[in-house]
């Protein structure tokens, strides 16, 4: 039974992320268009909303190029190593009161640890491509993702301390509205570090378009590249859903189905903010990125943890 359930959930997670990515790419093109005095997709569907119906089959029908010098098995399966952890992380998000697809007592730890495996996939793809620009991108990604794990985990830890549990469902039960102002700094740190985790602007150094052309996935074409893109959008969706749940209260604002709508709206808001930042900000440089992580985000996250810890004494 557990096996069937797991299989079903796996399918569901892939559908969620794929569907989310399809909507996300359209949404991003529209947001970018608004920021850049453009319109974005217009031709397929209302306001171009079905543009991805053309893009996805096209990518499916594209030739699948494996470069001559590439380490072929590594090259072929690296996209899955990027995508799978993100789909797995989606399992612990508390979607409903008392319900998460995978209701683990160490759900927060699971959520923080599993997507970090994705960095291995990125390194594999970068190495497997046998391409200098990809290799630089992969190395940048490794340094960046592992460093930003620290402030990200610390910021979530402040919520764990307040709730007294690592089980997302219990965190949602214990959640109080005044946690939002209390952990606002923590949320900003989580938000920033998550952007860095998903390699999006202004932290998109691994795929820096103006320097490395496309970075670690420069040699991927067709559907393998689409899996990378799905992974990127999936990471954005999963991180936003989780952040909207544990930091912003998710469905707790309103009872029943209205609460779920608020949850999705909050997550959409967070996703839009991620896009807004990407299309407005210039890109960091590697050393600035590291300095920012270790001298600004990490101490702030620690401070937030201390504040949360002190407050939790009276809870």
């Amino acid at each position: 039974m557990t096996f069937v359930w797991g299989l079903l959930w796996g399918l569901g997670a892939v559908m969620l992320i794929a569907g989310g990515a399809v909507i996300g790419v359209w949404w991003e093109r529209k947001v970018a268009g608004r920021i850049q005095l453009r319109l974005g997709p217009q031709q397929i569907g209302p306001a171009g909303s079905l543009q991805m119906l053309a893009d996805v089959p096209k990518l499916l029908f594209k030739e699948d190029i494996v470069p001559d010098g590439a380490d072929k098995p590594v090259f072929r399966y690296a996209p899955l190593a990027v995508f799978a952890p993100i789909a797995m992380a989606a399992a612990v998000i508390p979607f409903w009161a008392g319900w998460a697809p995978f209701d683990s007592t160490v759900g927060v730890l699971f959520f923080l640890a599993v997507p970090a495996i994705g960095v291995i996939g990125i390194l594999l793809s970068a190495w497997g491509s046998h391409n200098t620009l990809s290799t630089i991108g992969g190395l940048r990604a490794a340094a960046q993702m592992i460093s930003y794990e620290v402030p990200r985990s610390l910021s979530v830890l402040s919520i764990v301390v307040l709730a007294g549990s690592m089980r997302p469902v219990e965190i949602m039960d214990a959640w109080r509205w005044w946690w939002v102002p209390l952990t606002l700094v923590g949320f900003v740190i989580y938000f920033t570090a998550s952007i860095a985790e998903m390699n999006r602007g202004p932290f998109d150094l691994p795929e820096a378009e103006s320097e490395l052309v496309a970075g670690y996935f420069a040699d991927y074409s067709g559907f393998r590249w689409a899996i990378f893109m799905m992974g990127e959008y999936g990471a954005m969706i999963v991180a936003s859903l989780f952040g909207a749940a544990v930091f912003l209260g998710g469905f707790r604002w309103l009872p029943g189905i209205a609460g779920f709508v608020v949850f999705i709206a909050l997550a959409t808001l967070v996703i839009t903010a991620v896009m807004w930042i990407k299309w407005t900000f210039p890109r960091f440089r590697q050393d600035h990125l590291m300095t920012f992580c270790w001298t600004v985000l990490t101490p702030l996250a620690l401070l937030q943890l201390v504040v949360a810890g002190v407050v939790s004494l009276w809870l």
Partner: peptide
């Protein structure tokens, strides 16, 4: 100069 650092939107504004 903006686009090289990743800020493509600034390019759109100057291009306008």
């Amino acid at each position: 100069a903006g686009a090289d650092t990743g800020a493509t939107s600034a390019f759109m504004y100057t291009f306008w």
